[in-house]
């Protein structure tokens, strides 16, 4: 640069001798400010656009974050409701099991009572048979008494009447005993039928009948099994849903963590903005120097002023604030590698 300035500082006659014309240089430099202005405009535009984009990204991330939080809250509420439903279902199922157990016990007890009653009625049948025996014997005795009365002649006529009446009574007693016996037989048969008959219900599903089991208790057991099976199925669905809800909650938490991390990464825009502002500043320096050179060759700026304001790459290095800028500077100028040993986080 200094050599160029020396060349530019010679007289106009010398310019032509050196093949260097100040007016040509000034004309060439005249366009530089406008050029730099456009570049500066572009840089400002990039800063503005990245700023707006970064803000929009943060807004959208925050929206995603809010939605994820709402979703996590809803799912947590759902999981809580499902969990309470599962607990309630278990409680109802347990209550139903107990109720059915008590019903089965009640019916078994009742059936036992009926069986004892049937046994007692069958015992009555023995007494009826004894009465029938007594009636037959009485009938024979009455017949014998009539024979003896006939044999006694006129004196036994009255006795013959009594014997005939006794025979008739014996016959009626036998008929009554037979009727009672038949009724007892019918009753016991019907009660046996009540205890063992399941033809009108789920006879196809009935298992082998134990001595204690009846149609009613089998049906109750079937209802209890069906209810338990359904409860287990619903409990399984609830459990799977609670597990799925838990997974959604974990995914939501992960999503929230990711969006928080992404929001943190948006800091790149601030860093890029500052780097671009430094570039814009450097472009401005180049512009100013071009204007100075043009002014100098037109003799409106002294050599001293020009040299005092001349830019250098070392000035640029001093303006860098970021470690990354210094590293890039060293790489571009071939200077010593930038060694920034300072920690990124330091508490004093």
């Amino acid at each position: 640069m200094t050599n160029l300035l020396r060349k530019l500082s010679v007289t106009s006659a010398d310019h032509e001798d050196d093949g260097l014309r100040g007016d040509v240089v000034a004309a060439a430099l005249d366009e530089v400010p406008a050029y730099c202005e456009v570049v500066d405009g572009h840089l400002k535009d990039v800063i503005e656009q990245t700023g707006e984009a970064a803000e929009a990204i943060v807004h959208q991330l925050l929206n995603v974050d809010s939605l994820a939080e709402v979703m996590a809250g809803d799912v947590a509420q759902l999981a809580g409701t499902l969990s309470r439903t599962e607990t309630e279902l278990n409680r109802v199922t347990s209550g139903n099991d107990q109720l059915v157990g008590r019903l089965i016990a009640y019916f078994l007890h009742r059936d036992q009572q009926i069986r004892r009653l049937v046994d007692q009625m069958r015992e009555l049948d023995q007494h009826v048979k004894q009465i029938e025996e007594v009636s037959r014997a009485t009938n024979i005795l009455a017949l014998n008494a009539m024979i003896e009365a006939v044999r006694a002649g006129e004196a036994g006529e009255g006795f013959s009447v009594v014997a005939d009446e006794v025979r008739k009574l014996a016959h009626r007693s036998a008929e009554a005993a037979h009727g009672i016996g038949s009724s007892i037989g019918d009753l016991t048969a019907k009660l046996d039928g009540v205890l063992s008959d399941d033809s009108q219900f789920d006879s196809d599903q009935a298992g082998p009948e134990t001595s204690e089991e009846t149609a009613m208790t089998r049906r109750l057991g079937g209802i209890a099994d069906a209810q338990r099976e359904m409860s287990e199925m619903v409990a399984g669905i609830l459990k799977d849903t609670v597990t799925a809800a838990g997974q959604v909650q974990r995914s939501s938490s992960a999503l929230i963590a990711e969006t928080t991390g992404a929001v943190g990464h948006v800091q790149f825009q601030d860093i890029s903005r500052q780097m671009l502002e430094h570039v814009a500043e450097a472009v401005s320096d180049v512009r100013r120097q071009c204007e100075d050179v043009a002014s100098y060759v037109r003799d409106s700026l002294t050599e001293e002023d020009l040299l005092a304001r001349v830019i250098s790459v070392d000035d640029l290095r001093r303006k860098h604030v970021m470690s990354r800028q210094r590293t890039t500077h060293s790489q571009q100028t071939g200077g010593p590698a930038h060694d920034d040993a300072e920690p990124l986080i330091e508490l004093f």
């Binding site: 803000e55 943060v58 974050d65 929230i256 948006v266």
Partner: peptide
């Protein structure tokens, strides 16, 4: 002075 930085940091801290 960066609106983006303020938004980003505010979000992290508020959460």
């Amino acid at each position: 002075d960066s609106a983006t930085m303020l938004m980003s940091l505010k979000s992290i801290l508020t959460k």
